[in-house]
Design a binder for these strands. Structure first.
Lengths: 216, 216
DNA sequence: TAGATTGTTAATCGATTAACAATC
DNA sequence: TAGATTGTTAATCGATTAACAATC
C-alpha cells in the first residue's frame, strides 16, 4: 500500500538473466544450495554484488545457509516475467527473422510466437515453423483478434521507425529491435530493447586491435 | 615512447559504435560539421559525455567550430578497427549461422567471411552465400592455410567451451559468441564478445512487467 | 573582435566493494 | 553452541555531469 520502493537500476536488471542462467545450470546438475561466495566465484563477480543485487527484490537467502538454488532460480524467473506467457510476433521474415522464428529456446522460456509479418510477396504465404507469414497490410485485423505483447523487429532500418510507430498505435507492449537504429526516441509508451549486433562486433574488433597494439 | 595512457573504459568503448552510427547518418545526409551540443541532443546524451568520450582518444574538435562530421566518423571507425579487414569464420551453420552468413552489412564494414563449419552431414557441403560449409574435422587444415581473425560461434552451448578452446589453440584472435554460455572464463588469450539474445529478451519482459505493475 | 565551442578540471552522482552486526 | 553466511550500512571507486579557461 503506497510503498515507494526506488526503481531498481537497469544495470542490476541486466545481470539477472545471467544469475538465472547459472542457477538453472546448478539446478540441473542437482545442486540444492549455494552461498553468495560460491556463486560469485563461479560467475567471477563479487559476493557483495550478488547479495546487493538480490536484495533489491527481497531477502531470498538464509544466514548461515546461503540460497536455495531452485527457489532462487524460480524467484528470478518470476521477476523477469518468464511465467507471464508473453505472446510475440515477428516483423520481417528475412534471414534473421526466420532464424528467430525457428529458434526453439524462447518457447521454453514462455514466449509464444503467434504471427509473422512481411511485405515481400515472395515470403508472404510461406510457412515458417508452423506459422504462415502474413502481409503487413493485415496487421490491424490481426490485432483486433489477438493482442501480442512483444514485437520482434527484423526489418531494415529505413522502415523501422514507421513500423515501430504503427505497432505502438496498435498497442504493442514491447519491441525487441534488431534493426540497426535506436527506437527509444521514436516511440512513446512502449518498452524498447535494442539489439545492435554490429555494435557488438565493432566492440570485439576494438578489443582485438587493442591487444595487437599492446606493446606500443 | 613509454607513454602510459590509461586504458579506456569499456563503457566508453561500447558507446563508440553508436557515435559511429549517428555520424555516418549525418555524413550521408550531407552535414559537414556538428557541435557536441547538437549531437548530444540528437542522441539523447549529454554534450559533456560526448566530449569526455572523444577526448579519451584525442582532440578531434575545434573550439568555436565543433567537429567535422566525416573526419570524426573516420577517426572513430579507425579506433574500432573497421579498416583492418578482419577475416571471419562461422562455426555452426544452423538458422542463426546462416542468417549471419547471409547478412550483407558486415562485409561493408570490412569483415570478410572466409569459411563456414559444421558437423552435421546434412549441411556440410551445402553452399551458403557463396561459401561451401566444411566439416569441423578440417579446421586444423584450414588454419594452416588461412588465419581468420574472428570466429562467430552459433553452436549449442554444450559444445561451446570445447570449440572455443580448439579455436584458441589454433590462434583465433576473437570470438563473437552467440551460444548461451559465457566463454571468457574458458578461454585465455582470446578476446570474447558474448551476445546473449535471451538475456536481452528477458530484460525486455522485465521492463514490460514493471510497466504493468506501475500503479501498485 | 565577439561568439561559439572545445578540452579539461572539478563536483556530483551512482555503482561497487568492504565490513559487520544479526541470525540461522 | 560455534561457524557460516546473510542483509545492510558505510567506504570506496568509477562514471557522469557541470563549469570554465583556452582558443578558434
Amino acid at each position: 500500500m503506497g510503498e515507494m520502493k526506488k526503481d531498481v537500476s537497469l544495470v542490476v536488471i541486466r545481470r539477472l538473466p545471467r544469475y538465472y542462467r547459472y542457477l538453472t545450470e546448478l539446478k540441473e546438475s542437482g545442486i540444492v544450495r549455494i552461498s553468495s561466495k560460491a556463486l560469485a566465484e563461479k560467475m567471477q563477480v563479487t559476493a557483495s554484488q550478488i547479495r546487493q543485487d538480490l536484495n533489491c527484490f527481497g531477502g531470498f537467502g538464509q544466514q548461515g545457509y546461503g540460497y536455495n538454488v531452485s527457489q532462487l532460480q524460480a524467484a528470478i524467473g518470476d521477476i523477469l516475467g518468464l511465467n507471464e506467457n508473453h505472446t510475440t510476433i515477428i516483423i520481417g521474415a528475412g534471414n534473421l527473422g526466420r532464424a528467430i522464428a525457428n529458434y526453439g529456446s524462447f518457447e521454453k522460456r514462455g514466449y509464444r510466437l503467434i504471427g509473422i509479418f512481411d511485405i515481400n510477396p515472395d515470403v508472404v504465404g510461406k510457412v515458417i515453423n508452423g506459422i504462415t507469414v502474413s502481409h503487413m497490410d493485415t496487421i490491424d485485423e490481426f490485432f483486433q483478434k489477438q493482442k501480442p505483447d512483444i514485437a520482434i523487429l527484423t526489418i531494415p532500418k529505413n522502415v523501422a521507425v514507421e513500423v515501430a510507430q504503427k505497432l505502438a498505435s496498435l498497442g504493442i507492449r514491447g519491441i525487441w529491435n534488431f534493426s540497426n537504429m535506436d527506437l527509444h526516441m521514436a516511440v512513446e509508451g512502449v518498452e524498447i530493447e535494442n539489439v545492435h549486433l554490429s555494435d557488438s562486433l565493432m566492440t570485439l574488433s576494438y578489443k582485438i586491435g587493442k591487444r595487437k597494439g599492446e606493446n606500443k
